[in-house]
Structure formats: C-alpha cells, structure tokens
Design a protein around this nucleic acid. Sequence first.
DNA 1: CGTGTTTATGACCACTTGGTCAAAATTCAG
DNA 2: CTGAATTTTGACCAAGTGGTCATAAACACG
Lengths: 209, 209
Amino acid sequence: MARATLSSKPTRIQAEKTALIMEAALKVFSDYGFRGATLDQIADEAGVSKPNLLYYFASKDDIHRRLLERLLDTWLEPLRQLNADGEPVEEITGYIRRKLEMSRDYPQESRLFANEILRGAPHVSETLAGQLRALVDEKTAIITGWAETGKIAQVDARHLIFSIWAATQHYADFDTQVRAVLGPDAENRFEDATAFLVSFYTRGLLPEG
Amino acid sequence: MARATLSSKPTRIQAEKTALIMEAALKVFSDYGFRGATLDQIADEAGVSKPNLLYYFASKDDIHRRLLERLLDTWLEPLRQLNADGEPVEEITGYIRRKLEMSRDYPQESRLFANEILRGAPHVSETLAGQLRALVDEKTAIITGWAETGKIAQVDARHLIFSIWAATQHYADFDTQVRAVLGPDAENRFEDATAFLVSFYTRGLLPEG
DNA sequence: CGTGTTTATGACCACTTGGTCAAAATTCAG
DNA sequence: CTGAATTTTGACCAAGTGGTCATAAACACG
C-alpha cells in the first residue's frame, strides 16, 4: 500500500482522487468550519467512501493542514506583486484590485482562512509570525519610503495594509451580509466595490499640499 | 418547575444563573464557533452541571439564539448614533471611533457575529434583510445627501459603510493576525488604528476642489 | 491470462455529544 | 417549622463522530 503520505510519484488515480477530495473538503470546511465539517460530509461531497478518503489522507487534520498550506502560497501572491519601482498610487490600487478579484473568484479560500484566524490561527501561527510578517515588513518599507519622499500621503503603512485586507476580504467573508444590505443591487457588488475602493484610496493616498 | 423559557418575573437565582451561563457561552462560542462549542465546555466554564444548564436553556441553539439577539441590539448602536445634523466628516469619523472601541472592548461579541455571518447567517438572515438593511438605508440616505450637497466627497455610501465595518471589526476578528504582523508594536494597535483610520477617512471624505 | 499491487468498502469500535429523567437537595412563603 | 415550589445532579441514552481493519474489487503489466 503506497500511502498518499509517501509522495514518490503519485499514481494517476492518486492525483485525481486527492484533488477531488481536497476540492470537496475546501467546500465543506469553508461552509462549516473545521469542527463543523464531518468526514462523512466531505466523503459524500467528493463521492467516495469514508475509508477510501482516509486511504488518501491520514486524518481530518491532515486534509485541513494541506488545504491551508496550498492556500497560503497563493494568498500572499497579490501583495508580493507590489512593486517598489512602480507608480505608488497605481501599485496600491492595483493591489486592491487583485485582492478584490481573489474575494470574487476564491471566496471559499477566503473563508477557510478567515475561519482559521478567527479560531486564533492554531495551525498557521508560525507562518503568520514568520512568512507573513516578513512579507509585510518588506512591503511596509516600500510604502513608508513612498510616504517619506512625498510620493504619497503620510500613512501608517501597516494599518493601511490591514485596512486593505479587511475591506477586500469583507466581500468574500461577509458576503451574506453584503447581499442582505444591497438587496437587488448586490449583482454589481464587486464592480461597485472596486470603483469605490480604488477611488477612495486614490484620494486618501494623494500627497497633501 | 418554572422553566426559564416562561419569563414571568424571573427569580433571583434565575437571573443570576442565566447571566452566568450566557457569559460562559459567549466566551466558548466566540472561541470555537457554534459547532465547535460543546455544552460540557459551556457548563464547565459557567461552573454548573450540564443538566442544570439545560434547566435554564432549552437547548444549545437556544443559548446561541439568545446571545445573538442580545448582541444585535448593541451592535447597531454606533451606526444609529450617526446624526444627520452633525458636521459630516466628524460624524463619520466618530462612527469609526465608536466601532473601534467596540472591537477593543467587545471582541468576543464581534467574533460571535463574524462566525454567524461566515456560516451564512443561518440564525439572523431575517434581521439582516430587515432591521440592518433598513438602518443602512436610512444612514446611506444621509451620507448621500452630504455628498450631493458637496459637504463631503462623492462616495458610494453603502460601500463606504462596508469599508468601515470591515476595517474596524478586523481588529477584533483578525486580532491574531494583527498581533503576529505588528509584533511588539501590537500594544498600541487600537490607538494606531484609530489615528490611521480617522486621518485616512478624513482625507478621503474631504470634498474635492 | 495470471499475479502482485493499488484502490475501495462494509462492518465495526471507542468516544463524544446534545439531551432526558427521576430523584435528591435547596429555597422560600406562610 | 413545614410543605410546596424551585433548583441541582448522577445516571443514562441515542445519534453522530473520527478512525480501523480485514477483505474484496480493480488495475497494471509481463
């Protein structure tokens, strides 16, 4: 038995099934949270039996951990793209756009992450204090540089980034509330949010004077 | 047996125990989510036996529902205070300050609410579409009025409110992440957030020209 | 085809969970 | 003090949970 844990050249079936199960798990975990999700539910969603699911993943924690790992890579990508040599306001509004696109296209991933942080990040606290903090430090330096040379307004770069995370992820994590408040207008919520945020942050970032 | 459900003049003991249990339940629910919380945990936290807990509350759902009810009242209070006759920018920044204070002083309530919305608001969807939407409509009209008479910049009032909700609640719901990124500077996170947001929104709201 | 390996599953298990109940302990009014 | 009402609890239960295991089916390949 070649456990999926030993990853020396996965079979075709192994590749297919693990992907299938992870998709199902993402859906169930993001809808019900880690504790709220059950293996039966995930197995059902994936169309496999529970023992079969546990043939590919060592445990419930294992699936969850691998989902988070896969997520964190792509999750930080938009911020990584923030370029020190670009036009400052465009770089920051570009970042906002990319984050909003992620909320629109990968809401399940956003909610999976939100769940994890809400619970106190039990599985990724090292990543936050390590990888994430390092990346934020790097980009914070760039933004602070822009502020000091007068290319953008004086802002606390870390809290600026927090506000961008919050405002953009809101449209994935709090989608239910957004829809309830907007009613029929909710159709255009991502376009409207983009227009508002880009315009508002542009105005807020323009150097004073 | 006078079930706590029948609320005709609660006994001293009834008043005390229900309050005690709700405090414990708030803590456990906000830390672990609805499904993740167990009655044993709540009973333990409250220092009562499980059957005793169920003497005061009909079920797990019952406790949760009553917590949410109590929450929603106070939750909307900061927005209710937004006054059409006040100075526009001050009114909005005042709202931001009040919301940040709530994140600082009632983080458990914030996370309880976040949990509920993340799961698709199964217990409060009517409240969102009713009470909340009505309130937002009312305040949106005020803000839009200010924008149209040139007292503040042209903004999409609904998405402005979303951004304020997101940015302020972020400091309660994503506290773990905020602390990880700020490191030792996290001590002053609420003061720094207030300074940044008030200044940034002031700049963003100033009428152009 | 035959055979070793991979994949799949039904039956099962220990443990947790929300909830019940009868009976005991406590409180309280007169 | 006493009896009725309120409060508390240990013992218990059915359903659901993550996970195991022996066995069977499907597959790869010479």
